[in-house]
């Protein structure tokens, strides 16, 4: 007989033979926190902002949203050290999309931090990191996939759900496909490059409730994979939720209603 597990979906309970990936352990500390806004006086600004979207991304799941120019996305690492694999596109013309090399070359630094500008393949600002509670954020580690898992961990991992599956599934909802996936950002993931060039994913520097805030510099489409990886420390071997909060500056909201 094929092994089954039991899942509760809303008010239903189903048995399934699908080898669903692991969710966080009982007793895991979760801190949903709240919006993080730009500027030194972050909380004062955040209170003035209007929340236009506030969603939780379940462990292992994909997510996407459109932001208008000027809106801010706060990503909360609710359980700590949970990689938020992240892609961003010009919402008006998705041929313009996030570019790791343009972002890194422009800032002449391999890590993302407060003030980093997320640049497109045309060199233009898509978003700006206006708030950041982690020492450094990753954009060189790429996304996990069932295929690359076989290279890193062995063929026995090929059936496991991965970020590339999430990216493809979510991208398809916006008419995008494999050719639209590029090197991504991994918020809350830690990929040091050592003096001799050695690099890899190691234990994270985040903690429950840590946040990053991104201001849209143009209308953007954001696609996120809440990373399902359980073979390396990018999720602390304990997949937890992400909270996504989109806020509009109070002034911009008034202008929109004018």
């Amino acid at each position: 007989m094929t092994a089954t597990t039991t899942h509760t979906i809303g008010d239903r309970v189903i048995e399934t033979t699908v080898p669903v990936g692991a969710h966080y352990a009982e007793g895991t500390i979760l801190d949903p926190n709240g919006p993080l806004a730009s500027g030194a006086d972050a909380h004062a600004d955040a209170d003035a902002d209007a929340v236009v979207l506030d969603e939780t991304v379940a462990p292992l799941a994909p997510w996407s949203a459109r932001l208008l120019a000027g809106q801010t996305l706060t990503i909360v690492d609710v359980g700590g050290n949970q990689s938020a694999d992240f892609l961003v596109y010009n919402a008006q013309d998705t041929l313009e999309r996030y570019s790791t090399p343009d972002t890194l070359a422009w800032q002449q630094n391999a890590y993302l931090r407060q003030g980093s500008i997320l640049r497109s393949n045309l060199g233009r600002p898509l978003m700006t990191v206006t708030g950041n509670e982690i020492d450094r954020q990753d954009t060189i580690g790429g996304a996990c996939s069932k295929e690359s898992n076989t290279l890193r961990y062995g063929f026995h991992t090929e059936h496991q759900h991965g970020c590339r599956e999430n990216f493809l599934a979510e991208a398809a909802r916006h008419g995008l496909g494999a050719r639209d996936l590029v090197s991504n950002i991994n918020w809350f993931m830690n990929v040091p490059v050592e003096a001799d060039g050695t690099l890899g994913i190691v234990d994270g520097m985040s903690a429950p409730g840590k946040r990053v805030a991104l201001r849209a510099e143009m209308d953007v489409l954001v696609i996120v994979s809440n990373c399902p990886q359980m073979n390396n420390p990018c999720n602390d071997f304990n997949c937890t939720p992400l909270r996504m909060i989109v806020t509009s500056p109070a002034l911009a909201t008034k202008e929109n209603h004018a």
Binding site: T5, H7, I9, G10, R12, I14, T16, V18, V20, G21, A58, L60, A61, P62, H161, E165, N166, L168, A169, A172, G177, A178, R179, P228
Partner: peptide, 25 residues
């Protein structure tokens, strides 16, 4: 089943075909 989430316990056939197809452009 209450859900068709790609990461969940009850993915749909079409969503799986979409992933397979995407890997061939």
């Amino acid at each position: 089943y209450g859900s068709a989430a790609p990461e969940g316990p009850s993915p749909s056939g079409r969503s799986r075909f979409l992933l397979a197809a995407a890997k061939h452009g």
